[in-house]
């Protein structure tokens, strides 16, 4: 069990970022840490992963093999992705897991410098190094950022698999972590961590763009919130309400410019 005991962190000349965090993390299900911007989530994750020491307090029971994904995986190296993953596996003392990149649907060049990768592909390399074989503690800072839908689903599946044996701690702003089965939800507020209720998964919505002769009036007649921009009316609706809304808008003389996922 990874135990975070009375951890305080203060950077030079700054206010305290963490003010007495107590946390016990166990394998079995991923732990999801929420908190506002600048609340200290990334600082806590760096301390749990072993990249930084707390000013006061300690972390005990950290397993020998740790996988860490920072908030934005930089990938500015001249090494190609394949070579980077081989080196990182050797540094961890675990066998490389070349199939992971394929599972994430990595489409970038494997033998060219990582600095040339797109943001999404770089993120997949970062995830592949963090989730490789033999890992005992996985710490992922905003792992869904920049991932396409298929890779985001793969990550959810992988976290479920990995969490069976390893301790998993993630942060997330995309809402994906809310749908992780059995996840434990935590919130960081005022430098302390508390258990939090699972956030409600966001309903999928449809974004509609209409071109109307009098958009302000149409918006009023339709009775829905929306944004007027030039001659266009931007609306959002639940999938079940989108058809009646479009029908009504067409009858009011609008033409549909686009309909798509929000």
């Amino acid at each position: 069990m990874v135990r975070v005991e009375r951890v305080h962190k203060r950077y030079r000349n700054g206010p305290p970022v963490l003010a007495g965090v107590d946390l016990a993390l166990t394998p079995g299900a991923p732990a999801v840490l929420a908190g506002g911007n600048g609340s200290g989530k990334s600082t806590l994750l760096r301390i749990v992963a072993g990249c930084a020491l707390p000013t006061v307090g300690r972390v005990t029971g950290r397993p020998p093999v740790v996988g860490y994904l920072p908030d934005r995986f930089p990938a500015q190296l001249r090494l190609p992705a394949d070579a980077y993953l081989r080196h990182l596996a050797r540094i961890r003392g675990t066998p490389p897991d070349p199939g992971l990149l394929e599972r994430f649907g990595f489409t970038g060049p494997r033998r060219e410098p990582m600095a040339r990768l797109s943001k999404g592909n770089a993120q997949k390399v970062g995830l592949a190094q963090a989730l490789g074989a033999g890992v005992g503690l996985v710490v992922l800072d905003e792992p869904w950022a920049g991932l396409d839908v298929a890779a985001a689903d793969t990550l959810a599946d992988l976290l479920d698999e990995v969490a069976a044996e390893a301790t998993v701690l993630v942060t997330d702003h995309t809402g994906r972590a809310a749908r992780l089965p059995g996840a434990r939800h935590l919130r960081l507020r005022d430098g302390r961590v508390e258990d939090a209720p699972a956030p409600a998964a966001a309903e999928p919505t449809v974004a509609i763009v209409l071109r109307c002769p009098e958009p302000e009036q149409v918006r009023h007649r339709l009775g829905v919130p929306g944004l007027v921009d030039g001659g266009r009316l931007h609306l959002r609706a639940a999938p079940t309400e989108s058809d009646p809304l479009l029908f009504a808008a067409l009858r009011l003389g609008c033409s549909v410019e686009s309909v798509g996922p929000a």
Partner: peptide, 20 residues
Amino acid sequence: HTEDPVQRDVTVAAAGGVGP
């Protein structure tokens, strides 16, 4: 300075500490 400080964090976590 080969590694960016954030990249260094990833390596440190993989190596199990700053020492190695």
